[in-house]
């Protein structure tokens, strides 16, 4: 145990775990309660299209990812709210096209190119100091915005029509939330990968929502759980020489199944 902490990359990975957990705990709670899991996954995957195009045109892949994910956030957000088409269908289509664009442009790019797997599962063991600073900035933005609009986010998640009758700027808040998801996804993707972002956005908050009765408390618990899953998964992957991202996700997934069972067994768990 003390052995693995002596590695610089392990220290960075643990610090990254803390920072990712904060962002995912807070945003994930909003995503789960507002039923935006599918749209978040869509945004995360569509961002891959931007990465592929960035490789091809020789610009910074993060810039490509950022452009695509913000574009996808707004487009999908608009689709979700305004069209009378089935929104989940349109989001699914955008998601698939985004990924396909990414793969094709990566194919077309000559020379060295990172493979898809490193974006899907990330490389938490390769986090740099600079990455950590960037993640800290993302965390501060996310937490700041959430504190600022906490009661409005809660009200729109609970009952959007009522919030609208109180003249709460419901649409603007939705755009802010969706943009925040897009930003966070891109920043965290390089570190932990697309799949792990989705896992950490949904699983800890979903467990929290099973047992707790307030949005604020769920954010805390989701952050804590996210941290436990990340560190637990890292240690397991180190001990058994497994892929870190996938191990973390399986730890989280197993915990979710256990939590579901536990909740079914004690229908009325007090949280006081």
């Amino acid at each position: 145990m003390s052995g693995i902490l002596s590695y610089g990359f392990m220290q960075n990975a643990l610090a990254a775990g803390v920072l990712v957990s904060l962002a995912c705990g807070v945003i994930g709670t909003l995503v789960v309660l507002k039923r935006m899991v599918f749209i978040s996954s869509g945004v995360a995957h569509t961002a891959y299209g931007g990465i592929g195009m960035a490789f091809y045109f020789g610009v910074n892949p993060m810039l490509g990812a950022l452009t695509f994910s913000l574009g996808a956030s707004l487009l999908m957000g608009y689709t979700q709210r305004k069209t009378r088409q089935r929104p989940d269908t349109l989001i699914g289509v955008m998601w698939a096209i985004g990924m396909a664009i990414g793969i094709i442009f990566t194919d077309l790019t000559p020379g060295y190119k990172p493979d898809l797997m490193s974006y899907l599962f990330g490389s938490i063991l390769a986090v740099t100091r600079a990455d950590l600073w960037m993640m800290l900035v993302v965390d501060l933005i996310v937490i700041g915005i959430t504190i600022l609009f906490f009661k409005e986010f809660q009200a729109t998640a609970f009952d959007e029509a009522f919030a609208r009758t109180r003249n709460v700027p419901v649409d603007l808040l939705y755009v802010i939330l969706v943009t925040m998801i897009g930003l966070a996804v891109v920043m965290l993707m390089r570190v932990v990968g697309l799949i792990m972002i989705i896992a950490l956005l949904t699983i800890p908050a979903a467990i929290g929502a099973l047992f707790l009765k307030s949005m604020g408390k769920i954010m805390w618990l989701a952050t804590g759980l996210s941290l436990v899953f990340t560190i637990g998964g890292l240690l397991l992957s180190y001990a058994f020489n497994l892929t870190s991202g996938a191990t973390i996700i399986l730890v989280a997934g197993a915990a979710y199944l256990i939590a579901l069972l536990a909740q079914k067994l004690c229908k009325r768990c007090p949280d006081e």
């Binding site: 309660l33 600022l148 609009f149 009661k151 409005e152 809660q154 009200a155 998640a157 609970f158 009952d159 029509a161 009522f162 919030a163 109180r166 003249n167 709460v168 700027p169 929290g208 929502a209 707790l212 009765k213 307030s214 949005m215 769920i218």
Partner: peptide
């Protein structure tokens, strides 16, 4: 509103629901 309309599982305390009645543009920020 008609209350079948809600997510009946939404994790929130009764008092916090009542508090939403106080929301409005003046209460932003």
């Amino acid at each position: 509103p008609q209350f079948t309309y809600y997510d009946s599982d939404f994790p929130i305390r009764a008092r916090d629901v009542v508090r939403m009645g106080r929301l409005g543009p003046k209460h932003l920020f």
